[in-house]
């Protein structure tokens, strides 16, 4: 009964794109029959649904879930917990964090593969341009389209701390406007297409217009954009940009896996910890 309530709360959280965790006791032969598939749901704001049938266990599990929900890129994990009677119980803590979002400024020809690759990688993707002829459903199917000029950004465009921004207007002034807007947001990543010299020009223009550009803002600015894979065609460049964003989201630095002992850092860590 409580299993179902916890599971329902978990489903609702995912559908509402909120963060949450569900902890489930994994039954082994010892626990089979004794425990009836217990689950506890823990929301990001620390409300609970369901039960694991043991207060001491719950306390430990909730602590782990809270810790994971506070992380930027948490991973789901099975942990062994000890009950007061020293019995060991395996609990799977499944963490859900909302899909990251991508915001692309500029709906030119080369934005098509960027938007489409990135959307199919699981990012909720939005594209912004002031030109209705460019920002069409035909060019950007399944992607949210916002027709807006710089003056409208404030009312129409939302950038939160889970939004990765790509600036690719191929237009100095529009890039400057988009970048000014993005720099004043909590975006963890602001990629700007084009060479370093162009970026410097834009930054200098922003400073000349009276806006300060802080070190923390500059640290979130990625230019030249993309991973260093020698990309030349729009499709190759799109892959390079998508790869850079995925690496940053996952906390990786990119590069070749060749000869690495582990594929994922997390698995390396959990292997070490047994």
């Amino acid at each position: 009964m409580n299993k179902k309530a916890a599971f329902d709360a978990w489903l609702t959280t995912i559908e509402m794109e909120k963060s949450g965790a569900i902890a489930t006791i994994l039954k082994t032969d010892q626990t089979q029959g004794k425990r009836n598939s217990e689950s506890l749901f823990i929301s990001k704001d620390h409300s609970f649904v369901g039960s694991l049938g043991d207060a001491y266990l719950e306390e430990q599990v909730i602590q782990l879930a809270k810790q994971k929900l506070a992380e930027k890129n948490p991973s789901s994990e099975t942990r062994i917990f000890q009950l007061l009677n020293k019995q060991e119980v395996a609990v799977f803590v499944d963490v859900f964090v909302p899909q990251p979002k991508i915001l692309i400024f500029g709906a030119g020809h080369d934005a098509i593969p960027v938007a489409n690759f990135i959307a199919s990688s699981g990012f909720k993707t939005t594209i912004v341009d002031q030109r209705p002829l460019y920002i069409t459903e035909e060019r950007f199917p399944d992607i949210e389209r916002i027709i807006a000029r710089a003056d409208d950004f404030k009312g129409k465009v939302i950038i939160d701390d889970n939004t990765y921004v790509i600036v690719m207007n191929h237009h100095l002034e529009r890039d400057q406007e988009a970048l000014t807007f993005a720099l004043n947001s909590q975006a963890p990543y602001i990629g700007v297409l084009g060479p370093r010299s162009r970026r410097n020009r834009i930054i200098n223009n922003i400073k000349a217009s009276g806006s300060a550009v802080t070190e923390s803002q500059m640290s979130r600015l990625y230019n030249p954009i993309g991973l260093d894979i020698g990309a030349r065609t729009p499709e190759e460049i799109a892959i390079s940009i998508a790869a850079e964003i995925i690496a940053i989201k996952n906390g990786y630095s990119g590069g070749f896996l060749k000869d690495s002992e582990f594929i994922h850092h997390a698995s390396a860590v959990s292997e070490e910890n047994g």
């Binding site: 499944d94 994922h264 698995s267």
Partner: peptide
């Protein structure tokens, strides 16, 4: 959701523990 709505019986399989380099991760 669809299975529930249509009253179809179903099971959910979840990767709960991985040792080594499996293709899919926990969750």
């Amino acid at each position: 959701r669809a299975a529930r709505k249509n009253d179809t019986k179903a099971a959910l399989a979840t990767v709960v523990r991985v040792h080594g380099s499996a293709y899919r991760r926990e969750g």
